[in-house]
Design a protein around this nucleic acid. Sequence first.
DNA 1: CCGGATCCGATTCGATACTG
DNA 2: CAGTATCGAATCGGATCCGG
Lengths: 127, 127
Amino acid sequence: MDAPVWNIMVATCPSRTSLAKIANKWTAMIVIALSKGSLRFGEIREEVDGISGKVLADTLRDLERDGIVERTAYNQMPPRVEYELTALGRSLREPLTALGRWAEEHISEVLDARDAYDERPGTRVLP
Amino acid sequence: MDAPVWNIMVATCPSRTSLAKIANKWTAMIVIALSKGSLRFGEIREEVDGISGKVLADTLRDLERDGIVERTAYNQMPPRVEYELTALGRSLREPLTALGRWAEEHISEVLDARDAYDERPGTRVLP
DNA sequence: CCGGATCCGATTCGATACTG
DNA sequence: CAGTATCGAATCGGATCCGG
């Protein structure tokens, strides 16, 4: 009767595998792109600058399998396929958008830290 | 005089590279582990079940370079090295903890979606 | 014995070419 | 247009070794 306890820190816990998939730059950018609404394959590709067709297709299939995006194919020529966040996927918007925002808001601090690190003589050592 | 505009959706933007590093399962787990305070190398290794020495060392070096963790080595035998979040790193706690929580809270929905997907005959196609 | 460097196999990535 | 196939290149990750 106990609800199972999930813990990402345990290597074999399914939640760890799930974290591995969502803690991924492509997943983050695709979910952010789909935040505004349904998009076609090619539209996502334009939004997420630099993603290859293969990686986009692979990532979208994984996201669909995990119930995060819903895929709708229209039987037309040329093909037309729409992708849209599910309710589950929409619950991912906030955490992933926050990550993306962090990257944009703190990048100058990161760049400064990197400069400092690269020109620092050695590691600080205490006795 | 304009502040530069960073955008993770642009392939060459430094913020994209930064996102690539933080949107990573090992980074997430290490930052979460360090949320409670300073830890030794071996202690992080225990917390983050299943991480190898190499991956931990690599990830910690990257995080140190980006100003997210501070590394302190003590000149002792056997070696003793402490890792701790910087102020910048502490600002990452919330977004990454939220991601980890999401994985734990929604894993059962993900597993259900996966089952449904795997036994579904074909893709839904609209005319 | 701890932190981490090295080596090397496994996985992922991405550019190109091709199909319905 | 939305994929799949293929195949080097790059990255990841694990076992092992090393210096203090």
